[in-house]
Design a protein around this nucleic acid. Structure first.
Length: 553
RNA sequence: UGGGGCGUCGCCAAGCGGUAAGGCAUCGGUUUUUGGUACCGACAUCCUAGGUUCGAUUCCUAGCGCCCCAGCCA
């Protein structure tokens, strides 16, 4: 845990449960699991689940398994499996040797299915999907028993074995638990346990053509791994009676308990694999790791440190109430960590040329600049200064309003770590745009302090024109232009057309020299990181600095 | 109209019968060679109505509101 993370974890109901189970002696150590389905990349919502599951065992002692819920070969891919492992590791968690797959248990699950059949608690149903849906009833009325519900055990066994042997096509038959077609809980109206899918599985190939449903596989997998606390999101609350029913009627080696918490939602963000997959497939974003994506991979590429994600999840808390966390809370966690860790540099995003008229032509010098005022150990570096510079266009106004402290004709400001300069003249092009500033500097203010004690109201960043390096800078903003994308239907309609602004910037040379993957601060602008994929010098904006001036104007 | 869950500050979220933590946001102010950071201060009577109690956000009752469930998805 880094020092930027809050020390005292806030109380939450899961910690209370785990703590109570430990003190009561119900468990001597706790075992959790993170069970992703490899059908997409992990996003910040998964990060919450990861932090909860791994965090709990870090705090209370025990272990957390990484288990792929690979029960549906029609939807899952190896690419996702690889990405998931990389993302969990990057987030800072380690499952040790406890890497599992639901598919590891296919044989045992199958044996247990036969066990249910033999006990008369499961049957093979020949109904078509449509018939099954019709007979399931509605939310307010119970369902009707399948005409095949009372088949003899021997016939069920025979048919189930033939399903396994591949004698029937996809969808021809299913294995169903015989529970209660009249239950108010639809999950108990004879849920399907197995279905036929003639698609090769990434791990088991063509060994199996019948695959267990989530409800059948999950709890039994938990039991096989001796999971003590099976944590999932609220929508599985209704499934808990089925989870318990199966554990109760099967000779499982352990008795896990399921607990549900509310999933994470963030303003201006969509966290649904279905939609994220669609954005990638339809080219609305660059890929799963597009810096605008709420995926772990996207955030990593945007320069967000894993510590910030962990801290954000901690601050957001864990509860059972549906909620939507303000994006500002995420940004705050990112800035908090970066403020303490990021090295400072100077870069000009929208350059305005400045000529220091009284600075000797052709000469230059190197000035000392602090790398990180928050961290003395970060040391200092040299920044080249010369007669021609670039400053930010926003830092000059020909006719400034009252509260504008920066440069305007006649005013004096400080160039950070350099000199005080005074604007003498603004040169314009034919259209009236200011294209160059003529200024003078005070040689006595080298380093940024005036011996006579006079003060300036602004300190500005700058870059030496002759030494500056050109770089592409990608300014990202929210992927959506409304806080609740999709609230009116298709979130594609809410995509922010201005979510990416690509500009050509002038940066201090040290930025081209450094090869690090670390996120840095461009002073007065924000945090940026070298793009991990682009060939040339390309920086992605992670998040801007707070800007109370911009906010007030 | 069935089953399940949830309702505490603008947004998250503690609280578990003894008189409303914290974070984000917001608004003031101090410091400052980043209009950044840091620091100081301001900012809720707990969905409603009854009831129990000396005392209720916490217990009971009745309402109201929101979310989830009718995949051979997870």
């Amino acid at each position: 845990m880094s020092e930027t993370e809050t020390p005292a974890p806030v109380s939450n109901f899961l910690r209370d449960i785990v703590s109570a189970d430990l003190t009561s002696g119900k468990h001597k150590e706790i075992v959790t699991r993170f069970p992703p389905e490899p059908n997409g990349y992990l996003h910040i919502g998964h990060a919450k689940a990861i932090c909860i599951n791994f965090g709990l065992v870090q705090e209370f002692g025990g272990r957390c398994h990484l288990r792929y819920d690979d029960t549906n070969p029609a939807k899952e891919e190896q690419e996702y499996i690889d990405a998931i492992e990389a993302d969990v590791r990057w987030l800072g968690f380690d499952w040790g040797k406890h890497l599992y797959h639901a598919s590891d248990y296919f044989e045992q699950l199958y044996q247990w299915a036969e066990h249910l059949i033999e006990k008369g608690m499961a049957y093979v149903d020949d109904q078509t999907p449509d018939e099954m849906r019709l007979n399931r009833g509605t939310l307010t009325e119970g369902g009707k028993p399948s005409p095949f519900r009372d088949r003899a055990v021997a016939e069920n066994l025979d048919l189930f074995r033939r399903m396994k042997a591949g004698e029937f096509p996809n969808g021809a038959r299913t294995l169903r638990a015989k529970i209660d077609m009249a239950s108010g809980n639809i999950n108990l109206r004879d849920p399907v346990l197995y279905r036929i899918i003639h698609t090769p599985h990434p791990r088991t190939g063509t060994t199996w053509c019948i695959f267990p449903m989530y409800d059948y596989a999950h709890g039994q997998s938990d039991a096989l791994e001796h999971i003590t606390h099976s944590l999932c999101t609220l929508e599985y609350d209704d499934h808990r009676p089925l989870y318990d029913w199966l554990l109760e009627h099967l000779p499982v080696p352990a008795r896990p308990r399921q607990y549900e918490f509310a999933r994470l939602n963030i303003t201006y963000t969509i966290l649904s694999k279905r939609h994220l997959t669609q954005f990638v497939r339809d080219g609305h974003v660059d890929g799963w790791d597009d810096p605008r994506m709420p995926t772990i991979a996207g955030m990593r590429r945007r320069g967000i440190p894993p510590e910030a994600i962990r801290e954000f999840v901690k601050r957001a808390g864990v509860a059972r109430a549906n909620s939507v966390v303000d994006m500002a809370m995420f940004d705050a966690a990112v800035r908090d960590h970066l403020n303490k860790s990021a090295s400072r540099y100077m870069g000009v995003l929208k350059p305005l040329k400045v000529v220091i008229e009284n600075y000797p032509e052709g000469s230059s010098e190197e000035l000392d600049a602090v790398n990180n005022p928050e961290d003395p150990a970060a040391g200092s570096r040299k920044v080249p200064f010369s007669r021609e510079l670039y400053i930010e266009q926003d830092d000059f106004m020909e006719n400034p309003p009252k509260k504008f402290f920066r440069l305007s004709p006649g005013t004096e400001v400080r160039l950070r770590y350099a000199y005080f300069i005074t604007c003498r003249q603004a040169i314009k092009d034919a259209a009236g745009n200011v294209i160059e500033l003529r200024c003078t500097y005070d040689p006595a203010t080298k380093g940024g302090n005036a011996p006579d004690g006079r003060k300036v109201k602004a300190t500005m960043h700058w870059v030496s024109a002759t030494h500056a390096v050109n770089a592409e800078v990608r300014l990202y903003s929210t992927l959506f232009n409304r806080p609740d994308p999709g609230a009116d239907g298709d979130p594609v309609k809410d995509l922010n057309p201005a979510s990416l602004d690509v500009i050509e910037a002038k940066l201090e040379p040290a930025l081209a020299a450094r090869n690090g993957k670390d996120t840095v601060q461009f002073e007065r602008l924000g945090y940026f990181v070298r793009d991990s994929k682009a060939k040339g010098l390309v920086f992605n904006r992670t998040v801007g600095l707070r800007d109370s001036f911009a906010k007030a104007t």
